[in-house]
């Protein structure tokens, strides 16, 4: 039963990824839709990381003891300055751990 469930889950994730790559799907994207979709990467990735920083236990946490915010701010500055994934994760995680220990 577990294996069947895992198989069904695989089918679902694959379908969400593959569906619109299928050429036989009767769907034409106009220039406006294409322009709209050009924003999908920053929009989706932001919607994934923002709640991790600001929401804990279904509560908005804007207090200065929220180490996720300090880590996030440090990561944003590092990303802006260096454009490097390594530096961003390193500096961000450093600030996050410091905040967790001292706040």
């Amino acid at each position: 039963m577990t294996l069947v469930t895992i198989g069904l889950l695989a089918l679902i994730t694959f379908t969400t990824r593959y569906l619109f790559l299928e050429g036989k799907l009767p769907l034409r994207l106009g220039p406006n839709v294409k322009q709209l979709l050009s924003f999908s990467a920053p929009a989706v990735l932001t919607a994934i990381f923002a709640p991790i920083l600001f929401v804990h236990d279904q509560q908005l946490d804007l207090s200065y003891t929220n180490e996720y915010i300090w880590g996030g701010l440090a990561a944003i500055m590092a990303a802006y300055k260096t454009h490097s994934v390594y530096w961003t994760i390193g500096v961000g995680t450093g600030a996050f751990l410091l905040g967790g220990n001292f706040l």
């Binding site: 924003f39 990467a41 920053p42 929009a43 989706v44 990735l45 932001t46 919607a47 994934i48 990381f49 923002a50 709640p51 991790i52 920083l53 600001f54 929401v55 908005l60 996720y68 880590g71 996030g72 990561a75 944003i76 590092a78 990303a79 802006y80 454009h83 490097s84 994934v85 961003t88 994760i89 961000g92 995680t93 996050f96």
Partner: peptide, 30 residues
């Protein structure tokens, strides 16, 4: 995970429309 996605999004903010997109997405996702 958050730090990784910050690293992917921030360098891509090269215009006002993208900045607005990121800000709206931040506020509404929260």
């Amino acid at each position: 995970i958050a730090a990784t996605f910050i690293a992917l999004v921030i360098p891509d903010i090269k215009s006002l429309p993208i900045l607005v997109c990121v800000l709206v997405s931040t506020i509404l996702s929260v």
